[in-house]
Design a protein around this nucleic acid. Structure first.
Length: 824
RNA sequence: GCCCGGAUGUUGGAAUCGGUAGACAAGAUGGUCUCAAACACCAUUGCCCGAGAGGGCGUGCGGGUUCGAGUCCCGCUCCGGGCACCA
């Protein structure tokens, strides 16, 4: 080993013994870097194709998940390029975020050098993997040239009422005296740093009005070529529900009414009580004096509960509610019903108040039982029904003018009645909430807003962007943002009046950065705008987006929202309604049942394989181990399979440069046909993301070749074709072999081979003969065999006759040319 | 609780439209080469019966449709994931 590159004329036998993986991989990586391979211009005349892997958070050298992700991406980039496309393959780094800040706090350093070092490590790994990008287009979230436009976009959204300030409960750690991000709150509701129980506090926060796009975000899912699973998750997250909103007058209080939302107005006659959220603004007014002490104690208790406690279903229902002392009037039947509070009614959904129909809602039924409230059935149960609340369809009962109607019709009728009476209307509610983007952290993009005592919140003028993060900051062990104590940053002047003002010290959620980076890649050098709509039109939408399933909801939803909003604001092309036309979500790498991750300490570093078997073998393993969408279980077997991949590549090397000895198993014509079949198979497998079977096809084909050649031309065609179809999977070894076989040529600049369908079709087929569905014989037949001939051959088979035992066939089914089934 | 996936040899997986179940690998066993080992190569490898020829069984479980089911339908079990008091 090692002499492989020493001399182009080196003896074929020494080369045939194997090749030096390290030397070849480094050689080609340097070559690709020098030639600027896969740099692409916006006006490239070839058909455009935009392939994008989700830009990574720079956590250091690549982990196995990265390797898997970027192996798929690189395969597509190289394959599409060989097919004649101009492929945009950009990459960047999602470089803001908590881990860098936590590391800075711990190591008493600054997140910027820390992050830059991690980016350097990750870049080196990607290059070592042989993954190709147009590095000129690199985008980093923390780059001032990128932050400027992130802030610019924020201001445009704010101007158009798509960003706003509002009160929101935030996670507050009493020990650290600071707000925490959701990720910093552990599963048991405590602070990850201090261990104190985290509580909720109301604070002024910034939001993006994503709910304005709820309908579009839901409807446009239908046109996307995405995994059904991801679309379903987004649909559930948006959680559209249709129903009615109407007002319940309060007994003895003129002009006071409680609005409620329901999806089942048809069951309104069964309303036997009303429940409000403890945070509901009407609570003080509705509480009677004799109930006040108990109600206030209950409200106070709920307020200090953590989210986890509040959502826990463990607490007995009898402790989760309280009677206010007031009554509301059910407008449907004029009956008075008691008004309760309960912690499970959420202020953030619907109107924060519900009509309770225990007959047709299980939760209401449980609550009614706990508080001894009446239950009235308003839907006819089917015969034999012995459950509690009934949510199925049936005729309305006990409902006056609704009686006899089925569910759908009764809902319609009830809504019409509410509208006629002028007390209610048809409405749609969404589970989706507006996107809270404020983060009380340092290492993120500053929100470009100034607070003036005179003019309130004022946007920083465009020509003063970006608002940068000061470097001379001191990180406090508590995790409090140093921006809040940095006088130079904090104190500024009002852009409107020039008077003294203070800056917003919150930074943006890092999901803001990742919501438009794919647009910036189209025009990363633009200094006048985040991007030119014309440049975006050249490439968008992304033709193939690749990433982990963990981003199925948040990132993908936010990026869709940004794309729609920017198009509507005229920043992006108007007709760009969706950012990612096709999405592929790869499986996770697991080890011992759980996701491979740094925090679990079960990482297997790719560098170990780069240094031994090389990038090609590791790439081949990831392609071969199973379907790309499936999770990979890393086990002892993985190392053995990787070693098998390495051996396979060594065999390919010997086939391509050596002199295979032995008796060939087929003649030249047969080999040519087999080669066309290989091309057809691999091309089809690539198109349907079946890389594991594409690798298997290549292995099978190389097993045919290992015996040697009968016809040198056919053999050379076979080897060249094998190298071409493998070039996107294992770029280094195929590039080296191609150059040796075709001096001066570069395999990745060759056109993708196309199979001749005539030659790819099999000449002979194994015809299976069954008797009563059981295989009794196999006969080699011409591929164009006719049904009559098949039946004749089947009947003549000695094995078939033995199986028939003299019986006469009742029926014969022939499926030319593959199968005959004789039914006797 | 609701909504999605999934279950195939010892293991990872294949079977694309209802038509040869187990491709391709990994592992194991035996062999060739070697002083020996490694490498490489060859053979065997779902289970059961049988010396063999051959036969029977077999894709989580129970039914069904069909000439024919891993694949379609009905009912379960287990595993994984998402959402989870959403009115």
């Amino acid at each position: 080993m090692g002499e492989g590159l020493s001399g182009p004329a080196g003896t074929i036998h020494s080369m045939a013994e194997g090749y030096d993986v390290q030397e070849i991989e480094k050689k080609w990586q340097a070559r690709w870097r020098e030639m600027g391979a896969y740099q692409v211009e916006n006006d490239d005349p070839r058909p455009h194709f935009y392939c994008l892997c989700m830009y990574p958070y720079p956590s250091g050298p690549a982990h196995m998940g990265h390797v898997r992700n970027y192996t798929f991406g690189d395969l597509i980039v190289r394959h599409r390029t060989m097919q004649g496309h101009a492929v945009l393959s950009p990459i960047g780094f999602d470089s803001f975020g908590l881990p860098a800040e936590n590391a800075a706090i711990k190591n008493r350093t600054h997140p910027r050098p820390f992050t830059d070092a991690r980016i350097g490590e990750l870049k080196a790994s990607l290059e070592r993997l042989g993954s190709m990008y147009d590095w000129r287009r690199e985008v980093k979230s923390h780059d001032p040239g990128y932050m400027r436009w992130t802030q610019w976009i924020f201001l445009r959204l704010w101007e158009n009422d798509l960003a706003f300030r509002g009160n929101a409960p935030v996670n507050w750690c009493p020990g650290c005296q600071t707000v925490l991000a959701n990720e910093q709150v552990l599963a048991d509701g405590t602070c990850e740093r201090s261990g104190d129980m985290v509580t909720k506090r109301e604070l002024e926060q910034w939001f993006f009005r994503i709910t304005a796009y709820a309908d579009q975000l839901l409807d446009d899912l239908d046109g996307l070529d995405w995994p059904e699973r991801v679309k379903t998750m987004q649909r559930n997250w948006i959680g559209r529900s249709e129903g009615a909103e109407f007002e319940l007058p309060v007994v003895g209080r003129e002009g006071v009414a409680i609005p409620v939302f329901t999806t089942r107005p048809d069951t309104s006659f069964g309303m036997t009580y009303v429940v409000l959220s403890p945070e509901h603004p009407l609570v003080p007014e509705l509480t009677t004096d004799d109930r006040r002490a108990e109600v206030e104690a209950f409200v106070a208790h709920v307020a200090q509960e953590s989210e986890i406690e509040r959502l826990s279903t463990d607490t007995a229902l009898s402790k989760r509610g309280v009677f206010t002392g007031s009554y509301a009037i059910n407008p449907f039947n004029r009956q008075e019903v008691p008004i309760y509070l309960a912690d499970y009614v959420l202020m953030g959904y619907g109107t924060g108040a519900i009509m309770a129909v225990p007959g047709e809602d299980q939760r209401d039924w449980d609550f009614a039982k706990a508080y001894d409230l009446p239950i009235v059935e308003t839907v006819q149960r089917p015969a034999g029904w012995d459950g509690e609340a009934y949510t199925g369809d049936g005729r309305s009962i006990n409902s006056e003018w609704l009686n006899g109607l089925y569910k759908a019709e009764a809902i319609e009728r009830a809504i019409e009645w509410l509208e006629e009476q002028g007390i209610g209307r048809r409405t749609v509610n969404y589970r989706l909430r507006d996107w809270l983007l404020s983060r009380q952290r340092y290492w993120g993009c500053p929100i470009p807003v100034v607070y003036c005592p005179e003019h309130g919140a004022v946007g920083v003028p465009d020509d003063q962007l970006p608002v940068s993060l000061p470097d001379d900051v001191e990180f406090r062990p508590t995790g409090e943002s140093p921006l809040r104590f940095h006088e130079g940053f904090l104190n500024t002047t009002c852009p409107t009046c020039g008077g003294p003002a203070t800056r917003e010290t919150d930074t943006m959620d890092t999901f803001v950065d990742s919501s438009w980076y794919f647009l910036r890649f189209c025009d990363p050098w633009n200094g006048e705008a985040p991007f030119d709509p014309g440049a975006v039109e050249q490439w968008m939408a992304v033709d193939q987006y690749i990433g982990g399933i963990e981003h199925a909801i948040l990132h993908l939803m936010y990026a869709r929202f940004f794309t729609k909003a920017l198009a509507d604001l005229g920043v992006a092309p108007k007709d760009l309604r969706e950012p990612f036309a096709r999405l592929f979500t790869q499986g996770m790498i697991r080890m011992g049942g759980s996701k491979m991750s740094k925090s679990k300490g079960n990482l297997v570093a790719p560098s170990k394989y780069f240094e031994t078997v090389g990038a090609d073998a590791l790439r081949l393993f990831h392609l071969f181990v199973g379907p790309p969408a499936d999770d990979v279980d890393w086990s002892e077997q993985s190392d053995e399979v990787i070693e098998g991949c390495r051996k396979f590549l060594q065999r390919v090397w010997r086939l391509a440069v050596g002199d295979p000895a032995g008796e060939p198993t087929m003649d030249g014509d047969q080999l040519r046909r087999a080669t066309h079949r290989l091309i057809a198979r691999v091309s089809d497998d690539y198109d349907r993301w079946s890389y594991n079977t594409a690798v298997a096809a290549c292995m099978e084909f190389s097993n045919l070749l290992r015996h040697g050649w009968g016809d040198r031309d056919a053999y050379d065609f076979a080897v060249d074709s094998l190298l071409l179809v493998m070039a996107p999977m294992v770029p280094h070894v195929t590039a080296e072999l191609w150059e040796r076989r075709h001096p001066g040529e570069h395999i990745h600049e060759q056109p993708w081979p196309v199979a001749d369908p005539q030659l790819a079709a099999a000449e002979t087929v194994t015809m299976v003969v069954q008797v009563n569905g059981k295989v009794r014989d196999r006969i080699e037949v011409d591929a164009g065999v006719e049904a009559a001939a098949m039946e004749r051959m089947a009947r003549e088979s000695a094995k078939v006759q033995a199986a028939l035992e003299g019986r006469d066939p009742r029926k014969v089914i022939t499926v030319p040319p593959k199968l005959v089934n004789i039914v006797a």
